[in-house]
Nucleic acid binder design. Structure first.
Lengths: 278, 278
DNA sequence: TCAATCCTGAAACAGAAATTTCAGACAGGA
DNA sequence: TCCTGTCTGAAATTTCTGTTTCAGGATTGA
């Protein structure tokens, strides 16, 4: 029999609690589990009870000490946060299923995770790209194609977009005509590329605005970046997935295209006329 | 200016952090925000750093004291738990939400759709790629990067993988040494590329096995293909999304790597030895 | 009304936590 | 190679927390 959760314990204990203790319990439930992670004094304050009462309440729940109680709360919190809405890919996902749906399910959970990226950072990325004089993109071994994909789309939206070659030797040269109003987008994932890091430094030295897309372990290039987006890459399998990365790249392009809509619209129309596509 | 979130602060601070401090940062990110709510000693233990280092890390984030830092974490936690961001990843795609989560939600629905692709066709793809003498990949304007991505991965798994140039003129020439036991993977999406269609025909004429990845409207190149995977591309917005396509590409690689595991394993090991990577 | 019992919170206490200090380890530059 | 500056963790220090005690106050039953 596994230990009962704190929330359960509270409900079970409720009858025994004295009125001041019950007040503490209610306060906790209404801001669960955060309030329990605060020091006793604050918990007491929020409950309109004394510290001593809160301690007695915690003792009623069966904990030997307040730190003990907090540890349990933290454990439950980790547990809850780790599994994104628990079971889409839990064992319930069954090994009997076909490969593709199973794979895609994992990716979904991963995308969900990525949705938690700091919103401000994402917005800053899109704005920087929309507003820069020139946009220069570069990626590592596996991410270079993603840089290429972004480039192909951004070129339609605005002028001055360029994908830099990932051949090591010539990289620095490519910065010759890069200046303060330019933006450099770098993609660098685990097994970080030393060349890219040096490149980032060089770009910053030229006072360009460096934007970095990396994994949660953060490329050392972050040191030179103005903004960083750290994507979850680990999908709990033996391989890493770049789909999340791709999704973010696409989202940035989509957002930038919103920001640039007025100017881009005309641009796109001209283009279509020129190529006379179906 | 609203205060930046702790997560954002970490990313912004990352460059300034020393290696032990960065270790603390990573530990926190990997068990966020729980670890930060623990006492310094435990935080330090989990990070394989000393308490002093953790304190310095917190100071780098701009907090006056550890308790201050914890208060901020708790505030954010309350905020996050209270708001309806309590993620029903169903299609309650509220318009009030931020851009990125909204976008990713759409993609998720899209991936779900793609999961319904005929399983046999998917399997046939992976097997063909695993078993062929040579694998040649080519894409169109926006899909060429995806072909490049597949190429980069497949090259690790097996020999004889080659990405064909998408320059129109030379395409046909590239088929010179392609024969019956070869596989050609073609990616072609809406706004189909005439060149690619002609290329597909030429490949079939050389009796190579043509595999086509396209959208639900099916590229005319399907006429010459042995197997076709038709991915849902339309995500109900003004733009099309290639993320689903990318996901399928990745899944194919993953499946092929399962099929090739025995031979690929040795190959990968040799490679790692050769480059002396960590 | 009174007495017995149980709650309750203020204040004292003990102990653990955060913070500071400092000497050794280390990396980068000359 | 040595030197300089930086980084790091162990230990001393200080602050604050959790815990206990105890007296006043509320509640209940007679």
């Amino acid at each position: 029999m596994p230990e009962p959760s704190v929330e359960t314990r509270i409900h079970q204990a409720m009858p025994r609690l004295t009125s001041a203790e019950a007040r503490a319990a209610r306060a906790l439930l209404s801001d669960y589990p955060t309030l329990g992670l605060a020091p006793v004094a604050e918990f007491a304050g929020q409950s309109h009870a004394s510290a001593a009462t809160v301690l007695r309440f915690v003792a009623q729940l069966g904990f030997a000490s307040y730190p003990d109680f907090q540890r349990k709360l933290r454990d439950e919190l980790s547990e809850r946060i780790k599994s994104p809405l628990d079971r889409p890919h839990g064992d319930a996902g069954g090994t009997g299923q076909a490969f593709l749906p199973r794979y895609l399910q994992r990716l979904c959970a991963n995308l969900d995770e990525i949705g938690r990226l700091p919103q401000a950072e994402f917005e800053a990325f899109a704005e920087a790209i929309a507003g820069a004089r020139g946009v220069h993109l570069i990626g590592g071994r596996f991410t270079d194609p993603i840089a290429a994909y972004m480039t192909a789309h951004l070129r339609i939206l605005r002028p001055g977009v360029r994908k830099l070659e990932d051949r090591a030797a010539s990289r620095i040269d490519q910065l010759l005509d890069v200046g303060p109003r330019d933006v450099i987008v770098i993609l660098d994932m685990r097994r970080y590329d030393d060349e890219l890091v040096r490149f980032a430094k060089a770009a910053r030295d030229r006072r360009a605005k460096v934007l970095l897309i990396t994994d949660t372990w953060i490329s050392p290039a972050a040191r030179y970046a103005r903004h960083v987006l750290a994507c979850q890459i680990d999908v709990g399998a033996t391989w890493d997935s770049n789909t999340g990365l791709f999704a973010v790249a696409e989202a940035i392009v989509a957002r930038a295209s919103e920001l640039l809509w007025d100017s881009a619209e005309a641009r796109v129309k001209t283009k279509e006329t020129l190529q006379g596509e179906s």
